[in-house]
């Protein structure tokens, strides 16, 4: 009984300190000429703590791990393609402008600035048509695309820092050319 209470307390602490407690990842895939393109959007992505971190001028990273995996009935799913997309936002409290740097697999792809917080948050949480893979897919093969989203730094307490801070979303499809 005591153990159960402690486990529940630990779960509560973990959930309470999770930045993206109510967040969810919506994933869409499109196939065009054998290419897999991914669009994903994180809803309820920005909690008050994350927003406060952004407003404090703290460089805040929205990192997304995108993976294309082929389903396997008897073994672990095989990862065919992987991509890490990051968007680092830096709010300038003097000019009240958001500067967002997009990084894909370690390369800086684009830098955008905006005065509008809504626009900035949309840029941070909404990605469209990201080219994930040009691998040849197996006809009638079962695939799924998973997106793991997380923010850094994680504003965690001291009680138990190993709280899961990521949100997962995935979509499956069967390849039919």
């Amino acid at each position: 009984m005591r153990l159960r209470v402690m486990l529940l307390l630990a779960c509560w602490l973990g959930l309470a300190t999770t930045a993206w407690a109510d967040a969810a990842v919506q994933v869409q895939t499109t196939l065009h000429d054998g290419e897999v393109r991914v669009s994903f959007q994180v809803t309820e992505a920005v909690s008050e703590s994350v927003r406060a971190a952004i407003q404090s001028g703290l460089p805040t990273t929205f990192a997304y791990d995108v993976a294309l995996q082929q389903s396997s009935r008897w073994w672990f799913d095989k990862t065919i393609a992987y991509m890490r997309v990051s968007a680092v936002v830096r709010f300038d409290n003097l000019t009240r402008r958001y500067q967002i740097t997009f990084i894909e697999d370690g390369r800086v792809e684009e830098v955008r600035t905006t005065d509008d917080e809504g626009t900035a948050l949309q840029w941070l949480t909404n990605f469209r048509g990201r080219r994930l893979s040009s691998h040849r897919l197996v006809e009638d093969g079962e695939y799924h695309v998973s997106v793991k989203a997380q923010t850094r730094p994680r504003m965690l307490g001291w009680a138990w820092p190993w709280t899961p801070g990521a949100v997962l979303g995935s979509v499956s499809f069967r390849f039919r050319p």
Partner: peptide, 18 residues
């Protein structure tokens, strides 16, 4: 100064944790 102050507020829990 403002950002440092706000960042300290944001990082209050990790610092307290430390």
């Amino acid at each position: 100064a403002y950002e440092g102050y706000q960042q300290l507020r944001v990082l209050r829990r990790p610092i307290e944790g430390v």
